[in-house]
Every structure is written in C-alpha cells, then in structure tokens.
Nucleic acid binder design. Structure first.
Lengths: 194, 194, 194, 194
DNA sequence: AAATAAACGAGACGGTACGTCCCGTCTTAGA
DNA sequence: TCTAAGACGGGACGTACCGTCTCGTTTATTT
C-alpha cells in the first residue's frame, strides 16, 4: 500500500519564477549583492516560499546552475578531428565569457558561490568542463592517437580550465593568444610523448 | 623641511593586533563569516581604529597577505637542478596546505576574498606563485636547456597552480599522485620539444 | 419546501475539538500568544476547517465563551435573603478566579480579546455579570426593600465588577477583604437611602 | 576612583523622536496595528536603536505613558469644595475621552497594552486616577466631613474608574447621565454612612 | 449502486512584521 | 590627535503567523 500525503503539491510556476529571478538578480548584482527579498519580489513570491525549499543563496544558485540558467549547459566542445582546434575553441568560449566586465564578474561570483558550497563547487566544475564533454573529446583524441596513451586526460581538463579560472580570480584578462598558447603547449606534450 | 603634525602617531601595536586578529578570524570563519567588530574585539581595539586605516575587509586581508599572515611568504621553490622535482615539491606545498579541511577552507576563503577585490586577487596570485619564484625557477630551467626555449613559462605557472585552485574550488582533494602527474606531463613537453 | 444539498454535514466532532483546543491554547498563551495553526494542530484539524466556520480569533473566542469553555457560565449569584452576602460571594468567585497567576492572566487575556472585538466585549460583560444574574439579584433586593427604590442596579453591577476588572488590569490582587469592603460600601447607600 | 565608560551617550533627540512617533502611531493604529518599523521610520531612526533601549511595544508604551504622551498627566481633579461635582467632572473627562470612536479605541488599546505588561498596567491605573489626585480629593472630602470617616477612598476610586473601564471594555458608551448617576450614588453612601 | 458535492486533514501559497546581526559613520572622554 | 568604547541610521537576514487556495480522501445525499 502506498502512503502519500494529501494537500497541494509544490508549485512548479513558483519554482521556475524563483530560479529565473535568482539567475537575473545574481547576474546583475553578484553573489553578495543580490538579496532573497529581491528575488522574492521579482519572482512575485513570498520570501517563505524560497526558504521552504532552499536553505539560502548557495542552494538556490546550485539549482540555477543545474537548470542551466547561469551557464548554458548545451555548450559542448565540438569534434572536427583537430583536437587542438576543438579544445582551443571550447576554452575560448569560457575565456570570452570571462572577457567582458560583466562576464568576469559573473564568473567570479560563481567562484564565490563555489567557495561556500560543496555541491555548487562540483556543479560549477562540471559546467566549466562542458558536463564532461571536454574530457570525452580528449579521450577520443587519445584513442585516435593524437594524444599519448598515458596522457592524464582528466587532469588536462583541470590544467586548461584551471589556468583560466586562476587568471580570472586574479583579475587578469585571458585573450585569444593566451588561450592559443595554453592549448598548443599543453596538447603538444602529449603528441611529443608518444 | 618636514612639517610635523601634533598628536600621537599611529599605534604599531594596534596595527599588528588588528592584522593578526583579522588573520585568525578570517581563518576561523571565512570571508563572509568574520566581522569587523569581531576583529576589533579580539584585537582589543575600537572599530573606528580599523576603519581609520583600512577601508574594509578586502584591504585588511590584502595587508594580512602582504605581511604573510595568511599565506607563508617565506616559502619558495628550491633549485636542486632537477626542475620537475623542484616544481613538484612546490606544488605539493600548496596541495598539502589545501589538503586538510581547515587548509582547504582557508584557501577557498582566500578565493572568495579575491572574487570581490582586484588588488587582493592579484596579491593572492603572487602569493600562490611564491612571489614570482616559481616562474623564476622555470626560467632558470629554460636557460639551462631543461625546458624548450619557446616554453611559455608564465603560463606554465598558471596551468599548474590553476589546476590546484580549480580542484580546491570544486572541493576535490589533490594528492601527491595528482601533483606528480600534473608536473610530469606539463614539463614533459619542454624536454621533448627540444 | 426544503432544498437539500448533497455532501456531508458539518462535523460536530471537529467543532468541539476546535473550541476546546482554542480554550486551552488561549488560556495557556494568551490572546496574542496563541495561533490558529496551534489550535488546528491540537484539535487534529486542518486550518481551513477553522476558517470555514469562524472568521478568526475573536469569533472563535466568542464561541468558547458562549459554550462556557473560558468562563464557567453555570456560576450565578445565590439568593439567601442577605443581599450583601450574596453579592459578596459572587464577587469573591470572580476575585478568586483572578487571584492565581494563571487566573489573572486568563482574565487579562479575556480583556485583551475584548479590546479588539465588540461582540466579544459584550459577551465578556455578560459572563462577568453572571449572564445578568447579578443585576437580577439586586433587583430582587430592591423589590424586597433591601435597596433604595431609586438605586441604579445596572450601574451597581458595573461598579462592583468594574473595580475588580480595573484592579486586575493594573495587576493588583483583589483579596477577600477588598471584596468585602467594596460590597459593604456600595450597598450601604441602599439601606441608608430609604 | 570613579569608573566611567567612554563613548557616546544615549541620544536624547532619538529618544524623544521615538516616543513621540510611538504615541502617534499607537493612537492612529492601535496596539496591534502599529509596527516598530513604522515607529522607526516616522522617528527617522534605525530599528535597532529602538530595540537597544526598549524590549518591545509594551516598554515603549510604558515610557510614553510616563512622559504623558498618551494620557495628559497634567489633568487632575479640581477642588471646588463640592466633592461630588469635582469627582463627577473628573470622571467626565475620562468618559468623554472614551466617548469618541477614536478615544474609545485609544482607551481600549491602552487596556490591551496593560493586559500584557505589569508596569504599564500600574502606570495606566495611576494615569486614570490623575496620578493619585482623585484619591487625594476624596481624602480631603473625608477630612472635611463630606465623606464618612471609614470610607475606603482608595477603593472608591477603583469603583468609579472601574465602572467606566468596564463599560469601555464592553463597548458601551458612558454618557454624562451615567457618570452623574455613578457619582451621586457612590458618594451618597458615604454621606449616608455618617 | 453510481454520481454528486461538500467537508475534511494537510499544507503550499503571497504576504507582513518580527527581532537579530552587521555595516560604515559619528560622538564622547581619556591618554 | 589617536585611542577604546559604543550609539547611531540603515539594510538584509531567517522565522513565525496570517488568511487564502489547492490537493486528494471521506462521507452523506440525490439520482
């Protein structure tokens, strides 16, 4: 016998409105700058409805990320056969997003959120890695002999994205040339190692 | 000719007490968690004495970093002739610091502070790079022919430290093996490329 | 012709449970202190079942009073022939109820409810007057010549009960001696005035 | 050696502004109806400045009463030699204040506040008694032989004011005739008792 | 017996006010 | 004039209830 409770179910309309308002407010004012009341007002929702389902900003943002409202999850490295080109273009997407003042601020806000919440941190990593697609692309390259068989593909991803993250964290711009250099030298080692 | 002003001069005792209290409070409660009042109380100082000399948390922390109260600045890569070993040991120092729960929390708090303040972000980058010593070590290796002449040493530093930063940001531990793998593969190209 | 509707009728069980829970919660936490949700929970009832039949706290309490759940309505002045004794004993019942800490708190809570609701205020007055029985007793005494023909019996009731009410409102205890003095002096005129 | 603390002293300006705003807001919206934030806004003050010095509404109102902002403390029964007239006029002041819709609401709000706070209840009693002046007037009458030597003057005050309070609590109007009757019959007994 | 529909327990909803915490500024008295 | 102390105006926090609305179930009447 199944035991289910009566009463209204959670309002999907409210949930969407809250997450979308959160994404807008977060993008506009940053992690510290946006307020729960502001989200509630913009979503046309009572503050308690937010606290009923989320414990605070970090959880709220984690769900935004999960729904792809903060970082487009459809983005994914392509596979043209030229691994260096594919990886370079993927990194450029991230670097370009971090190039504008707003984009850099958003990325730093995402990092700020990640520092205070484990789940968000993991999710952000996944999002930045194209939901694992970057690693997949590198594995394909490895299978195709473009990368050394013993190349640590998971760590390659950390190296490349980490460099951009670190540069954003230290408020340095990462332009196309830097991305190209990063990619070329990081992937060269793998070919050379064969 | 020097123009003297009357009255007491800035209290060095208060300055030290404030920075040390800041370092302790920041380490204990994180960037968002510590309060100016808490620092003032622990330092046995009036709140105004803090605001008279610093504009707020970011400046306070920047000075802590400059004084080496948050991140030991005496640390510097050694030069044994074996660049891979030297670099690996340097990265291990960072990775080990980020290994304990407290160390990882501190590093994440530092990142959080960096996201909201440009000057602090730049300082943190410098601190993590051993005040440029990592790049120096790589340049020496390059001069000694251990790294390819065209190796982008500045970016190599970003790659290696960035990887650790990204892993800490995404709440992954970085153990000795990961550090060794990161170092080996990143520097390999330099030998092979010759 | 009667027009029937289908469906269940109002649940008497729920009605009783709600009123009894209201009386307990009100007595325990006072007018401002008790909550509709608390009543619903204690009564094992949905909140809407309360709002379906009552508009809020005042109506709920008015019904409690009408059912004698807050103030025993069976109490009534007796008629021994000695009007002073009968009235004094009646007042003593009220004064004694207001003597204990809990009793005084209850009486003050009743007053608090009366301040915000006219119907409840009128009901409370009636309850305190023994549903008019005090005035009846005085009228009998008047008819028997124990009180002056022109004695304002309705106001005598207000005077005597009002004194106790005022003393309770100002957190003064009203002991047997005070009650005796109040009664003796208030009724004295009636004999003397003949 | 005297031990005194440094730092700013309490702002008298803020204190006055808060009490005056409280009196206005309370009179306008009643005990339940006015809000601390509303008082803070009207007083041009931070909410914390209110909570720093008062624990909540009851304390705030108690101080208002003490400063005569809710109930004019200068009012006092006069002494024309005719005690019945003097007392009647005093009661009329209270009854008239309670006659208008606003006045009755204010008086009931005062009672509501009294029910939840002992100090306020005592203060209200004092205020209604003209800060003891009514009792003084009755004592003078007693000394002059207008009242019986054994008349319980303190209780006479409770009887008379209590009657008005009770009638206000039960939402009955108390007009000039009622006041006159109350006074005449209550004071008559004292003369008659001689 | 089936259909109808109201009352029920439960609880999510949009809101308001609460009392707390901390911000950065201002004020005081002492050294 | 710098200091410790701390009051100030302000803003956001997270909580508690309000009164309304919406579920899915139960139950009494009508068809």
């Amino acid at each position: 016998m199944s035991r289910h409770r009566s009463g209204p179910v959670r309002s999907e309309h409210a949930r969407r409105a809250i997450l979308e308002a959160t994404a807008r407010q977060f993008s506009a004012h940053g992690y510290d700058g946006f307020t729960i009341q502001g989200v509630a007002d913009e979503a046309g929702v009572g503050k308690q409805t937010i606290y009923r389902w989320w414990s605070g900003k970090p959880e709220l943002l984690t769900d935004c990320l999960l729904e792809g409202l903060l970082w487009d999850k459809r983005m994914s490295p392509s596979n043209t056969g030229d691994v260096e080109k594919d990886v370079r273009e993927w990194l450029m997407l991230i670097a370009q997003a971090a190039s504008s003042t707003e984009g850099a601020a958003l990325l730093r806000s995402l990092m700020s959120a990640a520092t205070s919440n484990e789940v968000f941190g993991e999710r952000l990593h996944q999002a930045l890695s194209g939901e694992g697609a970057l690693q997949n692309r590198l594995e394909i390259a490895q299978r195709d002999g473009q990368l050394a068989a013993d190349a640590p593909v998971a760590l390659l991803s950390d190296l490349l994205i980490g460099a951009i993250i670190l540069r954003t964290l230290s408020w340095q711009d990462t332009d196309a040339e830097v991305v190209a250099t990063l990619t070329r030298f990081t992937l060269k080692v793998q070919r050379a190692g064969q």
